[in-house]
């Protein structure tokens, strides 16, 4: 899945490690999600959405 997490994270001045800590996951998990190599679980997607204050469908877009 494509996503704009890296952009949203940069806008908030967060490092990958800080975002990972806020989400309760490893930094490698954030890296893999940003690269589109790992689709997060639904609970993690909801935590991301809550953290960025945006609906899940605005953050993630399915690959076409």
């Amino acid at each position: 899945m494509d996503n704009d997490i890296a952009v949203r994270r940069a806008e908030r001045g967060l490092s990958q490690a800080q975002l990972a800590e806020a989400l309760g996951v490893s930094r490698q998990t954030v890296i893999s999600i940003e690269k589109g190599r790992f689709d997060p679980s639904l609970p993690l997607a909801f935590r991301l959405a809550a953290l960025f204050g945006a609906p899940i469908e605005d953050i993630f877009r399915p690959d076409v």
């Binding site: 989400l23 309760g24 996951v25 490893s26 998990t29 893999s32 999600i33 997060p40 679980s41």
Partner: peptide, 12 residues
């Protein structure tokens, strides 16, 4: 215990 362990890419 890590409640979010299953959310990590390492778990996958």
């Amino acid at each position: 215990p890590d409640r979010n362990a299953g959310d990590n890419v390492e778990h996958r």
